[in-house]
Design a protein around this nucleic acid. Sequence first.
DNA 1: ATTAGCACTCTCCCGTGGAGACTGCCAATG
DNA 2: CATTGGCAGTCTCCACGGGAGAGTGCTAAT
Lengths: 346, 346
Amino acid sequence: MPDTVLNERALKLLKTLVQRYIRDGQPVGSRTLSRESALEVSPATIRNIMADLEELGLVSSPHTSAGRVPTAAGLRVFVDTLVTVKPLQKKIAAEIANGLSETGESSQALVTTASKLLSQVTHLAGVVTVPRRTHGQLRQIEFLQLSDNRVLAIIVVNAREVQNRILKLDRSYTESELRQAANYLTDQFAGNDVSDVRSKLLGELKQARESMNEMMLNAISMAQRAFEKGETEDDFVMAGKTNLLDFAELSSVDTLRQLFEVFNRKRDILHLLDQCTKAEGVQIFIGKESGYEPLDECSVVTAPYTVDDEVVGVLGVIGPTRMAYERVIPIVDVTAKLLGQALKMP
Amino acid sequence: MPDTVLNERALKLLKTLVQRYIRDGQPVGSRTLSRESALEVSPATIRNIMADLEELGLVSSPHTSAGRVPTAAGLRVFVDTLVTVKPLQKKIAAEIANGLSETGESSQALVTTASKLLSQVTHLAGVVTVPRRTHGQLRQIEFLQLSDNRVLAIIVVNAREVQNRILKLDRSYTESELRQAANYLTDQFAGNDVSDVRSKLLGELKQARESMNEMMLNAISMAQRAFEKGETEDDFVMAGKTNLLDFAELSSVDTLRQLFEVFNRKRDILHLLDQCTKAEGVQIFIGKESGYEPLDECSVVTAPYTVDDEVVGVLGVIGPTRMAYERVIPIVDVTAKLLGQALKMP
DNA sequence: ATTAGCACTCTCCCGTGGAGACTGCCAATG
DNA sequence: CATTGGCAGTCTCCACGGGAGAGTGCTAAT
């Protein structure tokens, strides 16, 4: 036994073991390891070290006479301290940058593109949460009469987002009533932070119920309805689920079934992604660390993306625990940065 | 050999064979068939008849000593002449009706719900094309200034559909210019069939280029841009892909991969669905009849749905060839009718 | 501490040999 | 002459077993 159990040599071996395992997904034997690692040691020595690593819970053997496979803990050590992030290929960086710049206006489209790019470049499943701009500036409110009692509210935020919402009202309004209401509201609230608008509306309504004329009251109550449930349900997009079919270790139909089910339910995944807004920079969940049973055999690599220094969403990829972290990490990293930039542009 | 080769008894046997095969997906032997069918004949007789049916290409045996399995041709005969459609369970009809009536306003939402209902009720994959109303009445056009040179066009059709489109223009317009343009266009074209508007715009522009004032010219050219590319890309929705994972015969990971890929590409499927708008009533494609290799082991059951006697879209389900046609056919049928009704409502 | 050698273990891949399920054919039957 | 019972033949499925290959753990030597 060496001075400290996890000495440099052991770590170097762990690193090559993980790299090899990631490459072809099979247990790595001592002979292979002795050839692969630059270290000049015999297989026998490696076997000893492996026994140590196994005791520490960093590797394990599927059965007596197979090589070793890194455990989740082993992978964690790898990504935390051993991984040497490959410099991003220019070609790939360009692919992402182009993809995003070629995409048109709406932030929804940008998010979808980002997700597709991630999946395309990493050959994993890409996920991106829809940006939730807590500090957007309300630009304009407009109402259109659709039919009796039904009014279309259009809310423009930040010169980019456009939200439609159909309101059913208790009576019908004339066109000029609607125009007046819209003008009043736009005058009153344009430039306000959109997260404040709702509470201000409530305050306004309560504070001055009697001092206002009917028109204003109507306008405010309509606006309230329009701002209700501001979150849309479609709050993240995902591309490349089929890439997961490529990996042998996920290919039991049952595992796949579970996986696809989770992606359909969305909520669980979203919760997981939400946690990532707190940290900054790339974050990695390996296996059970995600806390969701169906993802036990998956890793998730995420990074928050920002607009004007404010975190507005998270993106990342989901794949088997044996994904190519060295490649994936920088990809997720720059995609987050580029998406942030793309969203900022006018 | 009987009078005519495909006599009544042979057909009855084919029917029970198909039913049995659909039920549990395994080859059916002569003994089973003799018990199952109400016919009082011995297995030996049945073996003779089976030999005949095999010669006709309606059944086949996977190997010498397995029972018989219906071929695609056999299934075709079954659905064309033998199937006795089960009366739709009230519970299911109610489920669909409720599901649709509880869904809110937008036709997009209705379509998604319909797709989900189909998949939920049949345990297959549900598909619905987005309604393409060729004869919708234009109700209103509105323009909103977003930022310099960027204008949001809002087109209201039929008191239900709302389309947004962002236009990049060569100069910026004042609010009143936009309002005038919108008013002019709404006056001019409201009530027109939306499919005519574009051509009328063109005509108007050409015919009277000099006689118009600049405002009108601007209005018309803006409107033209707004009506370009009227089709959205997201032209059908699909729910319940995961249901396909349930069926043993589709569960080779490779088959599944192909299948999911097809659903992602969308275009091929859409083409297939488009063909179904021509026929009326329920239409069935068995195996290769669909013409798409990845669907070789699948059947597609579709029905067009109508609004005001005009076919506006197609819905249906996709599943393995051995799907429960007797149950699925009426479900697809009523869903089409109910969706049509739901879309018609104000 | 490292290494070579060796016995041991476990998987994977065949080939083998019933057991079970049907068929196809033939001869008997009404 | 259609139908039936009987019977041999065929094919799958599964369990068993043995040999090859890979890799380990232990021990004794360096």
